[in-house]
């Protein structure tokens, strides 16, 4: 599984990947293949949103009220090029969904990345040092987990809205969300890594490295960390899905991305207001996109969890 990041020549790594158990298990798992293909399509289309979207939804000048409230093209009254219709401001739904996915994916990705950085570091330090440092760090994590994650995130996000001057809110909203999600997300990684580090620390190869006066930082990074990566990979994949959901929920509640830089959750919140006016397309397409995105992540994550679980092999 470490093949893609190995410093060995590219062709060798690819060949090794193609020959591995993991790759074979991937191909034989229908859900995983479907999920991975779907995920790839969604991620690429979202990241390319500024290139492929018909309209720049972040630019208010691109909106045309003349073309507002149009249904999708296959419905009576729909018009090209507004394939999925437009909302009340004349925003093209397809473009909004593409841009919205981009925000959702980027926020989810950076939240997981930051959580990993914090969680791995704290886990390694706590597991290596033990004693009071370990106790303090882990109790701190316990406290964070003793408040529901959604509550932590709403608090961080809404308090940030109070503190940050209104002119800056649009720009900082994404970063605030990343921080809000990270605050409770890092604990799970720290717990996994800490438990593993506390075990590995006592093993002979680590003792040998210490006798050779290898610096602690190097032992942790080169010898212990790689041994903890398998469960971390599974946890990170599944929590990427959770992070996207959490972001969507916050934006839906109005404490996430602002309407000027909508994520999928913001679009659903805005569309929800028109649920009873018959304009179902405003809310339905963001809902479908969000669902597909998280389902794809979870399909891959579920497979990965089973494939990397030594008990199930």
């Amino acid at each position: 599984m470490s093949a893609p990041t190995d410093p060995t020549p590219r062709t060798g790594a690819l060949a090794r990947l193609r020959n591995s158990d993991l790759w074979r298990s991937f191909l034989s798992h229908r859900g995983a293949v479907v999920g991975a293909v779907l995920l790839a399509v969604l991620i690429v289309s979202a990241l390319l949103a500024p290139v492929i979207a018909p309209q720049d939804v972040h630019d208010p000048r691109a909106l045309d009220l003349w073309f507002s409230e149009l249904p999708p093209v296959w419905v009576e009254g729909g018009e090209w090029p507004y394939i999925l219709g437009t909302d009340v401001q004349g925003r093209d739904i397809l473009s909004a969904v593409l841009y919205g996915s981009r925000s959702s994916i980027l926020i989810g990705f950076f939240a997981v990345l930051l959580s990993l950085a914090i969680g791995l570091t704290i886990g390694l330090v706590a597991g290596w040092m033990g004693g009071i440092v370990d106790n303090l760090l882990m109790r701190f994590g316990d406290v964070l987990l003793s408040i529901p994650a959604i509550l932590v995130a709403i608090l961080v996000s809404s308090l940030a809205m109070q503190v940050i001057p209104s002119g800056w809110r649009d720009v900082t909203a994404g970063a605030v969300l990343v921080a809000a999600i990270t605050l409770s997300n890092w604990v799970q990684y720290a717990r996994i890594v800490r438990a593993q580090t506390a075990v590995e620390r006592r093993k002979e190869y680590v003792q040998a490295a210490r006798l050779l006066k290898v610096p602690a930082r190097r032992i942790l990074a080169h010898h212990i960390l790689p041994n903890t990566l398998t469960p971390i990979l599974v946890a990170a994949t599944l929590s990427f899905g959770m992070a996207i959901l959490l972001e969507a929920t916050l934006s839906f509640l109005g404490v996430g991305m602002p309407p000027s830089r909508p994520s999928l959750g913001t679009l659903i919140r805005l569309g929800n207001q028109y649920l009873f006016s018959g304009m179902w397309w405003i809310v339905l397409f963001p809902v479908l996109q969000l669902s597909l995105l998280v389902i794809a992540v979870n399909l891959v994550g579920d497979w990965l969890r089973d494939a990397l679980n030594p008990k199930l092999r």
Binding site: G31, T249, F252, I268, L290, S291, V294, I295, N298, D302
Partner: peptide, 24 residues
């Protein structure tokens, strides 16, 4: 497979779909 839908769809999405079908 349905259970994957259950963990993937946030509750507000399910709520909106329910309203769309059973109320609207």
């Amino acid at each position: 497979f349905g259970s994957i839908l259950g963990v993937s769809l946030p509750s507000f999405v399910i709520a909106i779909l329910l309203i769309l079908v059973f109320s609207v």
